[in-house]
Design a protein around this nucleic acid. Structure first.
Length: 479
RNA sequence: GGUUCCGUCGUCUAGUGGUCUAGGACGUCUGGUUCUCAUCCAGAAAAUCGCGGGUUCGACUCCCGCCGGAAUCACCA
């Protein structure tokens, strides 16, 4: 069955990790079945509308590699894809409902409704608007909300994730269909649009589960077939038990892009939070996810967001891309992450740096701190040498002598490459009768003054003979 | 408060009556990989399967009750 799915965000801000899954899962299902993915912008709340939010949403989806078949930018047979531009349509449908006696214009003032509500809470009785419904209906005129005329009864339905559901009549109420400003509510608009657009699977967060009976009633009154309903569990904040939201500091998905997280890792992590294929596989490409995704393996309970696992996955993906697609492919992703000091250096040189450092990257932005000494001479810090745990046993005179031997030996190296350097370093070990910890630490620090660096012979190879010797000489003079 | 959902290592999870003395991954710890950091490899600690009853020869798995957590009860989505 070809699934027609949709992601229908309201443009009130960026997409954060707490809600992006309701875009990913529909996408995977649509692609897997050869169906369609629709992007629809639910901008019926004019007060919460945020300028530029639509672009932010589109940007996030594109970055994650989630393309859509119908929606803004690409268009489609059901244009427009902004609910604000489909306003008249909802009114037409509401009118039909009024004609068939399943909706009514409601002139009741909001203040009056508040009173009813307070009355109920004072009496510790659930507030149901249908108990206060006007006795006689008036003709609708613009500026008046339109309400659904509910018929209390039990409902049973099947949720693809949560299973068989059942609710009593107390959850049905006269929900607002059209607001006094003429715009539809989410409750009504999404039903009309999903029907018009042929959506087969409605996937959304579990928070809509309790409103489902009202939607079911609406489908019936409108003579529509129920789409398949899929409730997605929440993503929980790192601490506490609440769902992850912007208030918990939920970062936008694209903020991670700027922090050097790869889209592949982000997608991989997010899908795995609440879904697995039953095997022990941890790393999935988008293609594998499309192939293996299944609704019946979506988790029913909420999953806690854990950034450390995301970061681990990111490291895995960085290495995987380098190892399977090549240095150039990974390099192309790093262009914005090099330290300022790298300006002016060739791509060829940076590629070499990347090749020896990539396997210790957790995020691409680690490049900034980790590679500086490849581009600029480090500041000499003698304490770092004499205070080193392997070198502090040696006197300064000893260190000085050792430096001289090292400089002399390296000056004679003709073929400055990793293999040759490894050989020379080993000879030096024998000649000086020093332990690797002592000799290598000295050279490593003298050449980088960094907390850590790649293997010494590789570091020296990339630095080149001239730079290596210049730095060693400078250090020798400073001691 | 009403309604609904959820409950296995710290975290993400596997598990559909016996193969579970509960498996994997992240994280943590230990050791190895000629220096550092990381990768990689090997290993360890870590879950009385929320609690209590039942059904059964046998329950993490089925049933009931309880407890705990969450969601929702807007002219927001």
């Amino acid at each position: 069955m070809k699934a027609v799915t949709r992601f229908a965000p309201s443009p009130t801000g960026y997409i954060h990790i707490g809600n992006v899954r309701s875009a990913i899962y529909p996408y995977l299902l649509a692609r897997q079945t050869g169906g369609k993915m629709i992007l629809r912008i639910e901008d019926t709340d004019r007060e919460r509308y945020v300028e530029g939010a639509t672009e932010l949403i589109e940007d996030t989806l594109k970055w994650l590699g989630l393309d859509w078949d119908e929606g803004p930018i690409v268009g489609g047979p059901n244009e427009p894809y902004f609910q604000s531009e489909r306003k008249d349509l909802y009114l037409e449908w509401a009118m039909k409902l009024m004609e068939s006696g399943r909706a009514y214009a409601d002139p009741t003032l909001p203040e009056k409704i508040d009173e009813y509500r307070k009355e109920c809470s004072a009496a510790k009785r659930p507030f149901l608007y249908r108990n206060y419904r006007p006795k006689e209906f008036v003709d609708w005129e613009p500026g008046m909300p339109i309400r659904f005329l509910s018929e209390p009864r039990e409902y049973e339905w099947h949720d693809e994730v949560m299973g068989d559901m059942h609710t009593g009549p107390e959850v049905l109420d006269d929900i607002i269909l059209i607001k006094k400003d003429g715009y539809p509510t989410y409750n009504f608009a999404h039903i009309v649009d999903d029907a018009e657009m042929g959506v087969t699977h409605v996937m959304r967060g579990v928070e809509y589960l309790s409103s489902t009976p009202n939607y079911l009633a609406l489908y019936e009154a409108l003579g529509l077939n129920r789409p398949k309903l899929v409730s997605l569990p929440h993503i929980l904040a790192p601490t506490g038990n609440k769902k992850l939201g912007k208030r918990d500091g939920a970062k936008s998905v694209t903020e991670y892009r700027n922090d050097g997280v790869l889209a592949e890792a982000m997608l991989n992590y997010l899908v795995g939070l609440g879904w697995n294929d039953g095997t022990e596989q941890e790393i999935y490409t988008k293609e594998e996810l499309v192939e293996k995704f299944s609704l019946d393996r979506i988790q029913t309970s909420g999953a806690r967001y854990d950034e450390t696992k995301l970061l681990w996955l990111n490291g895995q993906w960085i290495r995987r891309i380098f190892d399977t697609e090549g240095a150039q492919v990974l390099y192309d992703r790093t262009v914005n992450f090099w330290p300022e000091e790298a300006d002016g250096y060739t791509e060829e040189y940076r590629l070499k740096v990347l090749s020896i450092i990539y396997d210790r990257l957790k995020t691409l932005s680690d490049l900034k701190e980790m590679t500086k000494y490849f581009f600029v001479d480090p500041e000499i810090d003698v304490d770092m040498i004499v205070g080193n745990k392997f070198l502090k046993k040696m006197s300064e005179a000893e260190i000085e002598d050792l430096m001289k031997v090292v400089i002399h030996k390296l000056s004679d190296v003709k073929d400055w490459n990793a293999d040759e350097l490894q050989k020379v370093l080993n000879e030096l070990l024998v000649e000086t009768e020093k332990k690797p910890a002592e000799l290598f630490s000295l050279i490593r620090i003298a050449v980088s003054f960094a907390a850590f660096s790649p293997a010494l012979h590789l570091t020296l190879e990339v630095l080149g003979k001239d730079v290596t010797l210049a730095r060693l000489n400078a250090v020798a003079r400073a001691i």
